[in-house]
Structures are given as structure tokens and as C-alpha cells.
Simulated assay, not measured.
Amino acid sequence: MSKTTGLYMRILHRYLGFFFAGVMAMYAISGIVLVFRDTDFLKNEVQFQKELTPGLKAESLGKTLKRKGYKVEKEDGQKIIFNGGSYDKSSGIATYTDKKLPLLLDKMTHLHKAKSSQPLFFLNVLFGVSLLFFVVSAFWMFRPSTSVFKKGIYFTIGGVLLTLLLLFV
């Protein structure tokens, strides 16, 4: 019996699906969490104390701390009070609170958003290529003459139309 392309595609689809099950779950969970990144959903307050260069100006302090939404509330000769914390100009000590996700979710969302300059960016590329393979190989799951395949084509058209609608609305 000769092995067809369809058979190889089904086998690859099946075993890559099993292999990437954990990775797919991680990307699904972190994707859901990232939808709420502009809220405090699942975040805990964490206290920070950093020793910085003494005598920083308010602008430099914001850049040094790399805090989103940094805003100076009050400044005098000795202290800079900013949203969520303060900075002592003479000692260089910045004390502030921030909201962070629990460790595992934080690691997952950082991996999900990896850039090409980060060490694990290749995982995002590999996973993206794998998802494209799953899309293509799905069309080899059933013979084109079957009703399941024909219905699948209608669902595919519906999904593509929904995607286009979401992109352009």
C-alpha cells in the first residue's frame, strides 16, 4: 500500500498537535491574560526599593525607572513624589509600588511578547510556523469528496470572512 501525502499530513498533524499541546495551552492562557494587560486583573501589589544615582531630575527619574504612566505629583528640594512612590534626591533611593502578575503568568506573557532581540524569540517563530502547518494540514484530514470536507470548506470561508470583518471594522 503506498502512503499518500494525506496520510503523512495526518500523521504529522496528529503528533505535532500532541507535541505542542503544552505550548498551545501556554500561548492561549497568556493571550487571554494579555487582553487585560491595561487593567489590574490578576495583578498583585509589589513593593520596590531601588538605589539610583543621587540627584536625578524628575525626567531622568522616569526614564531610569521605566514605569508606564510615570507622573510627578510633587517635587521639593529633597524629594520627588510620583504616582505610586517617591525618590530621595540625596540618597538616590526610590521606593515605589507596582502591580505585577504572579510569577508563572508573568513569565508566560513575557514569552508570548518576545522580541527578536530576546533569547527565546525562536520559540514564537517556531510556534507560528507550526500553527500555519496546522492550518494547511487540516485540509488533508478528510478526502475532498466527503461531505465533512465540503462542510469544512464552508466553515473555512466563514472563518476567513469573520477574520476580514474583524480586521476592517
Rank of each mutant, 00 (worst) to 15 (best):
V33D: 02
K71C: 04
S147R: 02
F134V: 00
S90F: 02
G31M: 05
R143L: 07
S145Y: 12
A28F: 14
T146N: 05
M24H: 02
I157E: 10
I32F: 04
R14N: 06
K107G: 07
Y8C: 07
G6R: 02
V46I: 05
K150P: 13
K79V: 09
K107R: 07
W140D: 04
K151E: 13
Y96R: 08
L165P: 01
A28L: 13
H110R: 06
F122H: 03
A21L: 14
F36M: 09
T146K: 06
L103W: 01
G55V: 09
L165A: 15
L166M: 14
M141N: 00
I93M: 06
V46Y: 01
D106T: 09
E59D: 13
S60Q: 03
S117I: 07
P119K: 04
M1F: 12
T146S: 13
P102Q: 05
L61F: 03
T95E: 08
Y87K: 03
L104Q: 10
N83A: 09
F20K: 10
Y96W: 12
K115R: 05
P54D: 14
I11Y: 12
L161V: 11
N124T: 10
L34R: 06
F41I: 05
A138Q: 03
V135H: 09
E51K: 05
S130F: 14
L131C: 04
R67I: 11
K74R: 11
G62N: 08
L161Q: 02
L120W: 15
F36E: 10
L164I: 14
K50H: 04
I11T: 08
M26E: 07
F122K: 01
Y15G: 01
K74A: 15
T163W: 13
K151Y: 15
F41R: 03
K3Y: 13
K66E: 14
S117N: 08
A94I: 02
K151P: 11
K107L: 08
Y15V: 00
